[in-house]
Amino acid sequence: MNSQMEQGPRFRHFVSPGPSVSVTLDGQALELPFGVMLAAALLDRGIATFGVSVTKGEPRGPLCLMGTCLQCNVLVDGIPMRACRVAVRDGLVIERRLDPLPPSPREVPRG
């Protein structure tokens, strides 16, 4: 994993979270507390970058955490979902989009 992607605020849980379960993030195994909001669980692990912006590829992370801003969208078991709306459970396969989505090459027709 790109180390730059793991920069960000460290979070801590002041309430003891539940038992840990195994998930994968971008193909790597990770232990996260069961039942916790996925976005909070990832932030707890120092993961603040949830993807990159579509054209410029700049790091983006959760903003509103209320389901409105869609900035925390990740692929959960292959389906794009808001990480603020997903509870951690065993075996989640989480993928972040870490490359921009460049538009199709345009043709510049010669008249």
Partner: peptide
């Protein structure tokens, strides 16, 4: 005619064959 017109516009109109 389309390519000729698109070329004259000199703007990205997302034209692709």
């Amino acid at each position: 005619l389309y390519p000729e017109v698109v070329a004259d516009l000199a703007r990205d109109v997302e034209y692709r064959t």
